[in-house]
Design a protein around this nucleic acid. Structure first.
Lengths: 200, 200
DNA sequence: GCAGCTTTAGGACGACTGCCCTACATCTGT
DNA sequence: ACAGATGTAGGGCAGTCGTCCTAAAGCTGC
């Protein structure tokens, strides 16, 4: 098999295992078994475990960029694109309840390990933040764009964390709906309000 | 030394190490070194690592109850008590940026390991949820109390997750202030609004 | 059909893991 | 002073970890 193809398979298997079990709890042997290779042969493709992690982060960055581009292509209006982000919570609810958010849990694990790649993993959040801010800018909320983007990130991360703990699907749906309602209140045509003052 | 005292020291050392490094990444040897005991002697106090985890969760439950009772005693008004919860984010900002929220990160790690104690760890969230709901009930928001409580939990968990990734202290302070502003909007005297419709 | 490169399997390495045993030190009650 | 309980030290158990080596199989170009 071509080395690049094997490398891709390893990276994808590691991606899934790192998500499901965590980075540290996943061993070379686990990944090898998932791909169907011998343990020892790994050294040929990846010198160290950190190298696999690097490849996994690269893969996730590429996948995230592609997903964001897909959302942008799938909706003409920025509001619809932001709703695509919110709906991700519902679409991935099973995985979230079992293993949390792939980005958030990886970042927190790498932070605890004080791993060199922790900042690279945090760039995944940066991707979402910047893309969401871009949508809010397109909605004429240029001044608040990043703050509004971070508000959505905060809420989705919090929802993921609590959904993992309580494993409550209704909770996810209700909170996602609440985010959509919040978004509707931030849309143009309505009075611009401070993000955090619900009503006066 | 009395066995109960040694047990307490072990539990406290494990509590800190589980928070800083994570449950799996912390070994018997790490805890033993922190307490100043020999590795082998652990078997006398704790048969298994899971037993230590159980003791740590018990300790955190007790500490959390004490903290909540302290907040209740420290403020006569429910709003002030809720603000104590929000201020916890700022008081613990250094730890949060380095290691995340102790409750959230433990729950997500145990979920990934599919550990038997994952539900017991989730009860820590239940403690905060119920206490916050009690305060909102006292504010006359009985119908929405649990939903409002979960909203605060969602936001604080999200803030902790992003603060760990970005390690931005200003972000924590700004989001904590936004939560206080949101709280003010939910207080009696102002028009009762739906949680998720900021303004109309 | 052979040389040379790529890819593989299998195993070994030292270190570490959670767990467990046994011999010894220390303390307590009589 | 002594017996028994309580607590400790040190090391060993089998297993796994990440890492690395070597020998050979598979493929490609001549």
């Amino acid at each position: 098999m071509a080395a690049t193809e094997t490398r891709r398979q390893i990276t994808e298997a590691a991606d899934a295992l790192f998500y499901e079990r965590g980075f540290e709890a996943t061993s070379f042997a686990d990944i090898a078994a998932a791909v169907g290779l011998s343990r020892g042969n790994f050294y040929y493709h990846f010198k160290t475990k950190d190298e696999i992690l690097e490849a996994v982060i690269d893969l996730r960055m590429a996948n995230t960029r592609a997903m964001l581009a897909g959302w942008a292509a799938g909706a003409d209006e920025p509001a619809g694109r932001i709703r695509s982000f919110i709906h991700m919570l519902i679409a991935n609810r099973a995985g979230i309840m079992a293993h949390g958010c792939p980005v958030g849990t990886l970042c927190s694990e790498l932070a605890k390990l004080d791993h060199v790649a922790k900042d690279r993993a945090a760039e995944l959040f940066g991707l979402f933040r910047d893309w969401l801010a871009l949508q809010f800018s397109a909605l004429g909320r240029g001044d608040d764009a990043e703050r509004l983007a971070l508000h959505l990130l905060v809420r989705s991360q919090g929802i993921a964390a609590l959904a993992t703990a309580f494993r409550d699907e209704t909770f996810i749906r209700r909170e996602a709906a609440a985010m959509e309602t919040w978004l509707a209140g931030e849309l143009p045509g309505l009075a611009k309000s401070d993000l955090s003052i619900p009503n006066a």
